[in-house]
Structure formats: C-alpha cells, structure tokens
Design a protein around this nucleic acid. Structure first.
Lengths: 236, 236
DNA sequence: CGAAGTTTTGACATCGTTCAAACAACGTGG
DNA sequence: CCACGTTGTTTGAACGATGTCAAAACTTCG
C-alpha cells in the first residue's frame, strides 16, 4: 500500500538510443525526459501547463497522509494530462519507465486541453465503477485490456492474441486497481493457468484470449470462475 | 447493488411552492424541472449541452450490464455537469429529489464548461482514492462531510455542529461509496452511537462532531475505532 | 389497518487482506 | 565467476472487514 519505487532493472532510455544521445526536435516542441520514479506537474508549476506523452508511461497518483496510494490513471504515448488542481490528497504524476513528454500550454493548445479533460473524465468515471463495483478478476481483466491497447508490442498479434509491455509492477497494478499486490499476483497467475494470458519475463505479457478477457472485463463472466480461491473442484 | 428507486416519501417540489406553480424567470434562463428518479443528459442530447443545478440533487451513475451501479458524483445547488461521453458503461444523471436545473450550452458559457470539467476531475480523483483505498468508516465520513457542505440546513450550526438534508437512500450511498446498503446503515448507526452524528428522521442528519469526522475522512483515525464489528470491549 | 418502501439488525459466508517465507532476477564488488 | 544485497514475484495459511441472506421494525400514505 505504501509508495513503491519503480522497477530497477530498467531499460535504456529510448531517446538516448538515438543519434548521439540528443533528442531530435522536428518542429521545436519543448520536450522533457523523465527517469523511472521521477515526478512532474507539481503544484509549483503553472496551472495552464499541459503535457503530452511521446514515449513511455506515466501514472497519476493520489496519496493519503498515511502513505496509502491510489493510481487514478495510467497514461501511454499520445495521452495528455494537465497539472492536477489540489484536492484533499496530494497528487503527483510519476514516470513508470523512461518517458519523454512534450510540454505544452493550455493557451497554445486550447482544444487539446478540453479534449484531454473530457477523455480523462470518461476514463476516470469508468475507473470509479471498476474500483467500487468490480471483483479482483474483473479489475485485472480491465487493466490488461487497457494496457494492451496503450502499450502494444508490434508484430505480436497472431491468432487473435496481442502482447504488450508492462511498465507497472504488481504493487503499481494493485494501487491502480484498489487491491493488494498479492491479490494481483494471484489473479494474474490464475489467468495464466486458465490460458487467458501468458508471461515469462516480467515486462512482457501476452493476451492469449482477449475475447474472454473482454467478456470478463465487462463483468459478464460466470462469477464461479473468477474468485481468487484456487478452484478446489466440486466434482459434480 | 442493483438499481434502486428513489425515495418515495418525497417532498413537494420547491418550485411548485412558489406563486401559482409557475417558476419565475429572472433573466430568461432555460430551466428544467426533474422529479425524483428522472434522468437527464442522455446520449441523444447535444454534446455541447451543460446543466447547472439551481435546487435539488443530482447523482451521476455508471451502470454495469448486470445491474451493478456506481454513483460517481453527487451534485447539489450551483454545481454543473455536462453530457457524459459514453465509455464502456451506460451513464445517466439522475435526480435524487425534485430538482431544478438551468440548461446552458458550452458555446454560450465556455469558461463555465472548462471550470466544471476541472472541478469534476478533481472530485473524481478524490473519489477514486476513496473507492480504492479507504475503509467503510472513512468512506462514510467523507460522504457526510461532502453532503453537509452541499446540502446545508440553515440555522443549525450551533456548537460546531452542522446539519444537512440527506436526499440519498442507504442504497444510493452504498452505490456512491462502493459498499452495500447494510454496511452503510451499520456504519452510520455506529457513528451515531459514537456521538459523531445524529439523525431521527431519514432526511435530516446532524454532524455533532465534524472535527473528528474530518480526521476520520482524511484517514488519520485509529483503525481500531473504525471497524464495523460492534466494539466488544477488550477490558484493559 | 394494510401496503409499499426503507432501515435496522443478526447470523453466517467469503473475498481479499495480512503476515510470512521462499523464490527469482539483476547488478555489484571481491 | 560467484556470493551477496536489493527489488520484485509467488505462494501458503489464517484472519477479518465487508458482503450475503433473512427477517423484523419503522415510516409514510392511502
């Protein structure tokens, strides 16, 4: 439940892999490179500021005074976010891997700001429904589908299966889904045993049965096959 | 968990209490009167539409295909909301009592729309943290404080106590807080026994100790005094 | 009074948490 | 190359906060 550090066995920063370690500037957008765990968009920055992710992964976190953390959204490439106006909690945006963001301003991109706000609202509403009314399995299925769409790996979608890069640790997933990291681990392995997903390395997950996963994510699955308890078969 | 009807022992519509049952039109805003349970802002309305509550109470609800309901926000007078852009769920705005809303348009009130979106985002982020990371007691304390601020009753704030009109049923509160109606009832009565709140009629609640309630809402209380289990005193 | 809706309360079940330990992957320094 | 520390993951056992089921007590209204 407490603040977890980001994965340490990190990948090299993609931007550094480019020519000479210098990021290219196509037009002349203001860019900013974040290392895993680094935060951005704090209260001391201008309220009109807006960020767009070019590469990497950002989590928006709410922090309770006693250390409990709630990740309210996970953003991948092309998603935008603004400076959070403070509520009761402390809010931060944290990089989950080496991340490159474009720094914009509401005044220079008014439409983008409005669209970003609308999109954020729609996602947040869905996430609230997930947090308040879904089981661990349903939550996990939703997370997998969302992440697969945001962080797809090319060339790996044969036979209806998709694969994606998982930048989040089990603890991060737990803080996103309102679960504990143990429950996330158990649910994920349960899915694996059921043939819904597959993973060997920590960073790469394959959705082997996205169809069933989507049914589960929508809350349409048989509750029996979803509980955490290992199915101690009741022999009919 | 399923869709509940709104309270039936309803109050007379405030607007109808005014001269001759005709609502006055100070400037000439477009008004709309809603009866309890009535919905507004569905997908068939223009996306640019915006509503502002003048009197009453509106709940924004997300519905899962199997009937599970998540109320994502509860709005009182002066709060605004727009048409929800559809996500995976079905979204509706539902009146919790006789409610009067002002019908606006994004184009005629651009600032209001942006402000409403920002406010909605901030509240929703906080609510996500509540749903994902708070106990039943913490959730309930937050709800009471929020409702007391939005639906205050005049003349009743002696000795640091406030009172408010509760338009929501236990089932509504449960769907807002991600709990069951039984848990809400137990928690509320526990607060009552602890001297934190008081209520006799269903519609009127008094915060007799808002200070302690706020501490609890922030998650700073001793977990011991918060569990649902009736405190079967461990005699020191 | 009877009907309908709502709230309260009790007994019990269970999903998810908590606590604990082992395992795995990776980087570092000797 | 290997022991070791660190971080993350998996798994088991037991517990407990909350859910589920059921019934009684209220409240309001016709």
């Amino acid at each position: 439940m407490s603040i977890s550090e980001t994965r340490h066995n990190v990948l090299p920063h993609p931007a550094l892999l480019r020519a000479g370690g210098v990021a290219p500037k196509p037009e002349r957008p203001v860019l900013r490179l974040l290392t895993p765990g680094e935060t951005i968009g704090r209260e001391d920055e201008p309220a009109s500021r807006l960020y767009r992710i070019r590469e990497g992964c950002i989590a928006l976190c709410g922090l309770l005074p006693d250390g409990r953390r709630q990740i309210t959204d996970v953003l991948g490439p092309d998603r935008s976010f603004g400076r959070a106006q403070a509520g009761p909690e402390h809010y931060i945006a944290q990089a989950m891997t080496f991340t490159e963001v474009e720094v914009l301003d509401t005044s220079t991109a008014p439409n983008l700001a409005a669209d970003a706000a609308q999109a954020a609202l729609a996602r947040l509403r869905h996430h609230a429904t997930l947090l308040g009314r879904m089981t661990a399995a349903e939550k996990t299925a939703n997370a997998l589908i969302d992440l697969a769409r945001q962080f797809p790996r090319k060339g790996r979608s044969a036979g209806g299966s998709q694969s994606f890069t998982l930048y989040l640790t089990r603890a991060d997933l737990a803080d996103w889904l309102g679960l504990t990291l143990e429950t996330v681990s158990r649910t994920l392995n349960r899915f694996k045993r059921s043939g819904l997903i597959d993973f060997t390395q920590a960073e790469i997950v394959v959705l082997t049965n996205p169809r069933q996963l989507k049914i589960m994510a929508a809350g349409l699955s048989n509750p029996d096959q979803m509980s955490i308890k290992e199915s101690q078969k009741s022999h009919a």
